[in-house]
């Protein structure tokens, strides 16, 4: 076998296998709906052939490959399935958390929500969307049945990121929880700065929640080592709250309080607290849980 053919085979076969493994997750029919066109795959940046800027969100969560499958039934809604292979369970959970809080949860996959024709869930390293444009009873049932089929076909399960255990239980609104590791995602949920002031990257873990009561935002970041946390904390405080000085707290332009602490390899920041004492009390409760 010529060398080039060998390399091509070596590169293509596992890829083809991964695609066929993904394709096996979607059934040929669901109820009276049947596959209406060939399944499509978008690998890495090919996602932009399917969607424009929104594809950046999935890439920021590490999306490796997207499967798109459509189902049709005469005189009924088209059902669209999108299965994202996010590479790692943390990425799949992150993509799910990026959208969560829309609706009551469903028992599909590891966590799921359904509202207005859109089912989203995650399981293992997969994030899945099943959707119709306009709801009706039959189509909604088909969406949920299709979701269950896909979830059952995914054999693996994945653990949620450990940083979630560091959050102060009972003090935040679970539906507002966002997990991520890129500053662009932080900026979607809470705009901090155009630059990456907190040095978020693939080796960090970050979680953002809104606090019950004063609706302030708590951002918690875990770095791979203390040195990176020290550097990030210095950069953040110098650029975002230089007027805080040694206190680590500042009243911002909207008359709310921002305060930050670093402990070990973690940074915690409270944004938009009603009072300085409230911000400090929250950070103290976080500090007690930090390693």
């Amino acid at each position: 076998m010529p060398l080039i053919a060998f390399f091509l085979l070596a590169m293509t076969q596992p890829d083809t296998l991964r695609q066929s493994a993904m394709q096996s997750l979607v059934p040929p029919t669901i109820g009276q709906w049947a596959v209406s066109e060939a399944v499509r795959f978008y690998t890495g940046a090919e996602i932009f052939d399917y969607m424009d800027g929104a594809g950046e969100v999935y890439l920021a969560y590490g999306s490796r490959r997207l499967l798109v499958q459509r189902y049709a039934r005469p005189n009924q809604e088209e059902i669209l399935v999108e299965i994202f292979d996010m590479g790692l369970p943390r990425n799949a959970f992150g993509a799910y958390s990026n959208m969560q809080g829309r609706a009551p949860m469903r028992r599909i996959g590891q966590e799921a929500e359904y509202k207005n024709g859109l089912l989203t869930f995650w399981k293992g390293r997969f994030f899945v969307c099943v959707m119709i444009d306009h709801e009706n009873d039959e189509a909604t049932k088909a969406v949920l049945a299709l979701g269950r089929h896909i979830a059952d076909a995914i054999r693996e399960e994945g653990a949620k990121p450990g940083i979630l255990d560091l959050l102060p239980k009972g003090k935040y609104l679970p539906a507002t929880l966002r997990y991520f590791y890129r500053h662009e995602i932080l900026n979607i949920h809470f705009y901090l700065a155009s630059a990456n002031l907190l040095s978020l990257n693939e080796k960090t873990h970050a979680v953002l929640v809104r606090i019950t009561g004063d609706k302030s935002h708590l951002l918690l970041i875990q770095y791979p080592n203390v040195a990176e946390a020290v550097t990030a904390y210095a950069t953040f405080t110098a650029h975002y709250m230089p007027d805080a000085g040694e206190t680590g707290a500042v009243k911002t332009e909207n008359k709310r309080w921002t305060a930050a602490i670093r402990q070990g390899a973690c940074i915690a920041v409270v944004f938009d607290a009603r009072t300085q004492s409230g911000a400090r009390a929250l950070l103290e409760s976080v500090r007690r849980k930090l390693p």
């Binding site: 700065a193 155009s194 002031l197 975002y240 911002t252 332009e253």
Partner: peptide, 17 residues
């Protein structure tokens, strides 16, 4: 870090104005 970094606080100042 770029000097042209725009922070939320810059936006808040702009918004107030």
């Amino acid at each position: 870090m770029s000097e042209s970094t725009m922070t939320r606080r810059d936006f808040l100042r702009t918004t107030a104005a």
